[in-house]
């Protein structure tokens, strides 16, 4: 069995808030939610992909994590990137839900990209084919 990517993670400042944002605004689906000391092992998956790569909503309590997030946000660098079918349409829906779009849908060669604020300390890039 070859190696595979089963999980990827993003630092968040508040797990409950992150779960709400990532499910209600972005449309991810809760997968694992296991109490783990003061925090939770909290993951979501893409809709229609229950066995797909999990996104771990990881507490940013380490001071270096916060500094890392701040430095990325200052320069406008997304913490990670997700794929959608149509960035422009997706971003319109997000704006209607009150999400802050920091970079409107922009064609960049073979892809269309946009950047949003996840309210948990990160910028998130969205991409779709041009």
């Amino acid at each position: 069995m070859p190696i595979r990517i089963n999980i990827t993670s993003i630092f968040v400042d508040d797990q409950a808030k992150a779960l709400a944002f990532y499910t209600e605004k972005l449309g991810f689906v809760p997968k694992n939610d296991v109490p783990l000391g003061p925090h939770r092992w909290l993951t979501v998956v893409g809709p229609g992909e229950p066995d797909g790569t999990e996104l771990l909503l990881e507490p940013d309590e380490h001071p270096a994590a916060k500094a890392y997030q701040r430095a990325l946000v200052e320069d406008g660098i997304p913490a990670t990137s997700f794929a959608v079918d149509d960035v422009a349409a997706f971003v319109r829906e997000l704006e209607a839900k009150g999400v802050t779009v920091t970079q409107p849908a922009t064609e960049m060669g073979p892809v269309v990209v946009a950047t949003i604020d996840d309210t948990c300390g990160n910028l998130i890039q969205l991409t779709s084919p041009a």
Partner: peptide, 24 residues
């Protein structure tokens, strides 16, 4: 073309649209 860009966006546009290979 588009005013009000972040460092990330400027780097992205130079690289993707103009093939500029300079570091961030």
């Amino acid at each position: 073309i588009r005013d009000g860009l972040t460092l990330f966006e400027i780097c992205g546009r130079l690289m993707m649209l103009h093939g500029v290979v300079s570091s961030r």
